[in-house]
Nucleic acid binder design. Structure first.
Length: 546
RNA sequence: GGCCCCGUGGUCAAGAGGUUAAGACACCACCCUUUCACGGUGGUAUCAUGGGUUCGAUUCCCGUCGGGGUCACCA
């Protein structure tokens, strides 16, 4: 068989470059020893998964901790799944979560283009070479034929797929091929595998360690009938030409590693190193079964979720880092003020088993991150969130910068001995401080109406906005004493039956009347911020609505 | 089902042939406290299972079980 001629017939493009052209155009990178070249290779489906960020972070840290390069390649080879604006979703997610890449889609670089659609000629050149060398062939099987074969294989408990005796088009005669072409039958290009599934070998995965790989025997499709490559083929060509040194990807790719190994070999490429990262899981149902975070079932699988809820990007990143490198958390606790870029990320510290998504942990980290912000930084963070997701009312909070800054300073405990950690997300923070902007709707008191009324009346009678904290609290105590509550906590504790309650119960009534909440920062300061007039109005309203 | 990966508290996990088996989150208790938080102290709780190797195994080996992934002209 004249394979050269066949290659010309199957891939008739006349404007293909010889392979040496690409090899010299995309010369090996000139980087210091140990520098890693890693990549982000999302497909533009319009959906960014937490797992995307997880893997992105690992690749980013690996590149930048080694003085290497991180690039972004858009894997847009599936025309059916392509979604308008999806690249923007990718770019904006990476920007929001602070994953900075050095070259790639939208910013360019020496190894582009970085959109696979634009690399079609390159793939076709390499595929043509494979055909000319007898390592790839045209397959004219229809989808129906393929699924019929697969069904039969499953029925007979055979390994499903296109291989060996089931690879009908593998040994088509020259006449048959040209007849099919003349008849205009659509075809795909398949790789001619020389592997044997009975042969196994040990492969070193950077994360999993030594693993057993079974040789590939599948004649996988490398060019689809539209002439666009499949993932496997594009991966081999691109990661070779872009000179990727290490590929960190989800462990769902482990199963196709044998294909990639054979493909790289047939193309004469040196295999990059691989690290297969386990995916983030979630408990499913009552039986305690685990599964991957699912795009369809779990809102928290989507990166949009964290943005809408107003999680600080650094909180999400920090949480992911704790999952990625087991010694990260220890480092963070030791150096709370250091940026996470200073942590020495190590691929060897990546876990082998899939972690369960832990919202509690994320929230704890979020509190800590937010409590480390200055009032101004918090203002900016909240403002940016409100711009995009806040209600009209919440957007109004930002019109008086001075006022909001006072509120934030108090609520965050800026300047106090200890910072407060009440804020978890932007959304929750804005809800929490809403009482600074409007009276609570229906304050819920634990005490009975009579008591509430008496306390509010008595306290507001003596209230003077000019009082300092001590004077203010002194009046709170007087109110307590006058109404049969203990003002002295020790006295109360030794004989609680002698009192209706203690000064904290009295304070709670005023607190709830002012804010609607039983838990707030220092009440005295809140009342100063609200202003005398507003405080009297709220006290009166609360007493009236009982 | 075939193939592959994984298995230390509820969760993330450190760990080593001999340890009182770290730490963090969550939970509980107490302390601090004008409430709430913060903070502090303490506590409950873990080596999936059977068999080997060994003086000794949670650690090494094999089986079992359990969980996960994958078997496309999707990535």
């Amino acid at each position: 068989m004249d394979w050269k001629k066949l290659a010309d017939a199957l891939i008739p493009d006349e404007d293909l470059q010889p392979l040496e052209y690409y090899e010299t155009l995309y010369a090996p990178r000139n980087l210091p020893k140990g520098a890693e070249v890693t990549r982000l290779a999302p497909s533009p489906t319009g959906f960014m998964h937490l797992g995307n960020l997880y893997v992105a972070l690992a690749n980013e840290r690996l590149a930048h901790c080694s003085g290497g390069v991180l690039y972004l390649r858009i894997e847009d080879t599936d025309s059916k799944r392509k979604v308008e604006g999806a690249v923007d979703v990718i770019l904006s997610s990476l920007r929001y979560f602070g994953i900075a890449f050095d070259e790639g889609a939208e910013i360019g670089g020496d190894y582009g283009p970085y959109y696979q659609q634009q690399r079609a000629k390159i793939y076709r050149a390499y595929a043509k070479d494979l055909i000319a060398r007898g390592r790839a062939y045209a397959c004219f099987c229809t989808e129906e034929e393929l699924s019929a074969v697969r069904e039969k294989q499953t029925e007979n408990k055979l390994l499903p797929g296109y291989y060996g005796e089931f690879a009908k088009c593998r040994n088509l005669s020259e006449e048959e091929i040209y007849a099919n072409l003349a008849a205009g039958k659509p075809y795909v290009i398949r790789f001619r595998s020389e592997g044997d599934v009975n042969k196994k070998s040990v492969f070193h995965d950077e994360i999993k360690g030594d693993i057993t790989v079974t040789e590939n025997n599948q004649d996988v499709v490398i060019l689809k009938s539209d002439g666009i490559p499949t993932y496997h083929f594009a991966h081999a060509v691109d990661d070779h030409l872009m000179r990727t040194t290490i590929v960190i990807r989800g462990e769902e790719w482990l199963a196709s590693l044998p294909i990639h190994i054979e493909l790289f070999g047939a193309l004469g490429f040196r295999l990059p190193r691989y690290g297969h990262n386990c995916s983030i899981q979630k408990i499913d149902g009552e039986d305690g079964g685990r599964r991957k975070l699912s795009k369809r079932k779990d809102p928290e699988a989507s990166l949009v979720f964290y943005r809408e809820e107003g999680y600080h990007p650094l909180a999400v990143k920090t949480y992911l880092m704790t999952l990625l490198n087991s010694n990260f958390e220890e480092w963070r606790l030791k150096f709370p003020a250091k940026p996470l870029e200073e942590f020495k990320f190590s691929i060897g510290k990546m876990g082998k088993s899939g972690a369960l998504f832990d919202l509690d942990k994320l929230q704890d980290i979020s509190k800590e991150i937010l409590s480390s912000l200055s009032a101004e930084e918090m203002f900016d963070f909240l403002s940016a969130w409100a711009d995009e997701y806040g209600s009209a009312e919440e957007k109004e909070y930002f019109s008086d910068r001075e006022y909001l800054l006072r509120v934030l300073t108090l609520c965050m405990g800026v300047g106090a001995k200890k910072r407060r950690k009440d804020f978890v997300t932007a959304k929750q923070a804005l809800r929490t401080i809403s009482y600074f902007f409007r009276a609570p709707e229906t304050p819920a008191f634990r005490a009975d109406g009579e008591t509430v009324k008496a306390v509010l009346e008595k306290f507001m009678d003596s209230y003077d906005p000019a009082d300092d904290n001590a004077a203010w609290f002194d009046k709170m105590k007087k109110t307590a004493d006058a109404l049969g509550f203990a003002s002295d906590m020790k006295a109360y504790k030794s004989a609680p039956e002698n009192y209706r309650g203690n000064v904290s119960d009295v304070a709670e009534i005023v607190r709830v009347a002012m804010t609607g909440h039983a838990n707030t920062p220092d009440l005295c300061t809140i009342m100063q911020i609200l202003g005398e007039e507003e405080c009297r109005r709220r006290a009166a309203a609360a007493a009236q609505n009982l």
